[in-house]
Design a binder for these strands. Structure first.
Length: 291
DNA sequence: GCCCAGGCACTCA
DNA sequence: TGAGTGCCTGGG
């Protein structure tokens, strides 16, 4: 992707397939802070980055050309042509066409697997503001201080080793609740290589999913989220309550099991299932479809 | 005060 | 194999 650099700013030309608000607020990531409309700070890959989007430009700072090319370009999945994907999906049916048109600026972030795993373990039975809060508490308690920016202190998400030091009470103090033992189990299994996150990308989707399911507190939905948002398996189709609602609303017209929904998605969306899911999820949640 | 939220584990048929 | 229930916690 073309960009220009001015001092510590990287400037991209605004485009249809990049809306920072839609990217961050579509429920795939939790470490962002809204300063104003289209003005966000994110923490990822141990860095703090501000993203300011105007009509003409997307401004990222502080960063450098080198860091942009090595980190942020892949994080924002900038090499993928979302226009083609959206065209394919919109041709499927009118529902998908509307969902894509509703939020054409969504992109699937390529997040770090470890952070993704723990974040989605935390996500169960929680609403997004709570999830953000617990992830923030854990980062503050076990991560490393990065900087203070616009009056907020920012911390890295803890490494496996850092988080493995945590005991159950400390995790409960971070408001993890009944998920505290799950987090500890994830730390143990990843640390002792019972589950090797770095190998999941090169495994077939089904096999990679089986690996993640070994971790306590990780069921089909969370495994699929990790595979889609952290590993890059785009055929993963996480079925949460909103996706269940919207799929029933559009395609089934009856109560349908997550298994059946997933089988349908695999057949119908193919290897774009995960991306389709994200447009549908955002559409459903914003409009509260099926509720 | 009660209910529920971007699920999962556990139990029991 | 599938349905039913409890779970930390905070907000409506």
């Amino acid at each position: 992707m073309k960009y220009k650099q001015i001092e510590d700013k990287i400037i991209l030309k605004a485009e249809d397939s990049f809306e920072i608000e839609q990217i961050l607020e579509c429920g795939q990531c939790f470490r962002f802070h809204k300063l104003a409309q289209n003005d966000y700070v994110i923490v990822a890959k141990g860095k703090v980055l501000r993203i300011l989007q105007t009509k003409e430009e997307i401004i990222l700072y502080p960063t450098s050309a080198e860091e942009f090319e090595n980190l942020w370009s892949s994080y924002f999945d900038l090499d993928k042509d979302y226009d083609i994907i959206k065209r394919h999906l919109a041709e499927k049916d009118i529902h998908l066409a509307r969902a894509v048109q509703f939020a054409p600026g969504i992109r699937i972030l390529r997040q770090e697997p470890w952070e993704c795993l723990i974040s989605f373990i935390i996500s169960q039975n929680k609403q997004i503001p709570h999830i953000k809060q617990v992830v923030e508490n854990i980062s503050r308690m076990f991560g490393k201080y990065i900087c203070t920016f616009e009056g907020y202190d920012y911390y890295t998400f803890p490494t496996i080793e850092q988080l493995a030091m945590a005991n159950e009470q400390e995790l409960r103090n971070c408001k993890a609740g009944f998920r505290a033992p799950y987090i500890m189990d994830a730390c143990q299994k990843v640390k002792n290589k019972e589950v090797e996150l770095e190998k999941l990308a090169n495994m077939p989707y089904e096999e990679a999913k089986k690996e993640l399911l070994k971790i306590k507190g990780v069921g089909p939905k969370i495994a699929d989220c990790v595979l889609l948002f952290g590993i890059g398996h785009e055929e993963a189709f996480p079925v949460d309550v909103w996706v269940k609602r919207v799929m029933e609303y559009f395609y089934f017209n009856r109560d349908t099991s997550p298994n059946e929904i997933q089988a349908f998605a695999k057949e119908y969306f193919g290897n774009l299932a995960g991306i389709a899911q994200q447009y549908l999820f955002y559409y459903a949640r914003q409009l509260r479809l099926g509720k």
